[in-house]
Nucleic acid binder design. Sequence first.
DNA 1: GCAGGGTCTTGACAGTTGTCAAGAGATTCC
DNA 2: GGAATCTCTTGACAACTGTCAAGACCCTGC
Lengths: 238, 238
Amino acid sequence: MGVACPEGPRDARNDDEDGESGVSHATQEAASATGRFERAGIDKFEARRAELADAALATLGELGLARTSLREIAQKTDFSHGVLHYYFRDKVELITYCVRRYKEHCVTRYDAIVAESPDAATLSERFADALVATLLDDTAMHRLWYDLRTQAMFDGALLPTVVDLDRQLEDMIWRVVSQHAELAASDVALSRAGVYAVFDGLFEGSLQRHLAGDTAATGRLRTDAVVLLTRLMAEPSS
Amino acid sequence: MGVACPEGPRDARNDDEDGESGVSHATQEAASATGRFERAGIDKFEARRAELADAALATLGELGLARTSLREIAQKTDFSHGVLHYYFRDKVELITYCVRRYKEHCVTRYDAIVAESPDAATLSERFADALVATLLDDTAMHRLWYDLRTQAMFDGALLPTVVDLDRQLEDMIWRVVSQHAELAASDVALSRAGVYAVFDGLFEGSLQRHLAGDTAATGRLRTDAVVLLTRLMAEPSS
DNA sequence: GCAGGGTCTTGACAGTTGTCAAGAGATTCC
DNA sequence: GGAATCTCTTGACAACTGTCAAGACCCTGC
C-alpha cells in the first residue's frame, strides 16, 4: 500500500523551470505557492533538506566534488542513500543547494570590519587577520568552493550558481577595498573584477600552500594582503 | 601466441620507485640504463607515449579531469583503450606525464619579453599582451591546469607534480616582475609567492569570466595587469 | 621464411555511480 | 481506528570506470 511516493513532495521543488536555467533557489516559494503543505510540513521538509545538505557539505569539503557520491553523503547521516532523491531532484540540485546554503554564512564576513574600522590602517590589518582566520577555520569549505568554481569551467550546469556566488564575493571584497579607499581619501587603481581577482588569487594560493604543508603560508598571506590593499590605492583622479 | 606482453617494455618505466614519491619523469633514464632497447626502439616508444599524451591533453582540456576516461582518450586516437595501459602504468602516471609535457611549452613563455624589453613600460605592456594572448590561444590547457591544481587539494597523488609545476610558474612570473623592478629602479613590494598569486588570480578570474561568456574579460585583464605590475613596484628601501 | 619479441585488440573482471520503482513505517487527520 | 499521506528503506537497473589477462597482429633479425 502507499503508492504516493513518486508524486510525493517532489513537486514541491521547482518544476516550473524545465528549461535550461538550472538555478533552483525557488524551493520555498514554489512549495508555499502550491498551498499543499501547512507551515509545519514545509518547515520540517526544509529542516531535513538542510540537515542532509550539511552532511553533504561535510563530505564534499572532505573529498571534493569528483569523489563524493550520494551513498557516501548518506553514510554521514542516519538515513539511507535513497532519501537524497526524495529531498533533491538530482546531484546537481543537491550541490547547488549546498553551496547556496554555505554562501549565506560567509558573504557578509567582513562587513563588521568595514563598518567599524576607524581608519584605513586598522581596516587593512583587521581584513588581513580575518582572511587568515577564515582560511584556518573554514579550510575545507574554501577548498570545496574552488573545486566547484573550477568544475563550472567544464560543466555548464554549475555555471549559474558559480557566477551568482562569485559576484557576491566580488561585492564583498569591493566593500572592503572601496571603504579603505574612502578612509584613505584615495581611489582604487584596479577594476572591480580585478580587485576581487587579486585578493582571491592571494587567498587561493595561500590555501593551496597551507594544505600542501607550507606553515608560513598564512603569515605571508597576512602581510601580503596588507601591502596589496595599500598598493591598490591611487591618488584621486581629480 | 606471444606471452611477452605482461613483461614487455613495462619495466622501461620507473619501477625503481615503489615507495611514495609518485613522481615519474625518469622514464628515459630508466629505459636507457637497462640497455635492453636500442635507440630506435626507445624513440619509437617515447614517440607513441607523446602521441597518446597529446590525445589525452586534448581530451582533458575539453572535459576536465573528472569526466575524462581512458576510453575517451583512446577514442581520440587510432588505437583502442587497452594501449594506454601498455604505455602508462595507470591513470595517474598518464596525467602527470601529460602535465609535465605541457609544462615545457609554457614555463618559458615570457622569457623573450623579459630579455628584450628596453624599459619598464614596454615590459609591462608586452607582458599584459602575452597574458591575453595565451588566455585566448591556450584556453583549454589553462583550464586543465587549474582543474589539476584544485584536485591536488583533495588528492595527494597529484600534489608533487602540482607543487613542482607551481614553483616553476612562480619563477616564471618572478622573472618578469623582478626585471620590471630593475628597469624601474625599484623593489618589489610583495613576497615572491604573493606576486605569483595575484597575477595568477587575475589570470584565473579572467579565464573563468571569459569562459562564462564575458567578452570584456580579456580587455580588463590587459589593463589590470599593467596597473598591477606598476603598483607592485616600491621605492627601493635604501 | 621462420622464430621471437614488440605492439595492439579484445573481452572480460570487479567495483562504483546516479537513478528510480516498489513497498514498508510512521504520522496525521477525520 | 482506519484511511490517506508523508517519510524512508530496500533492492535493483544500466551505465561507466580502471585494470588486466589472453591472444592476435606485425615487424625485425637471423
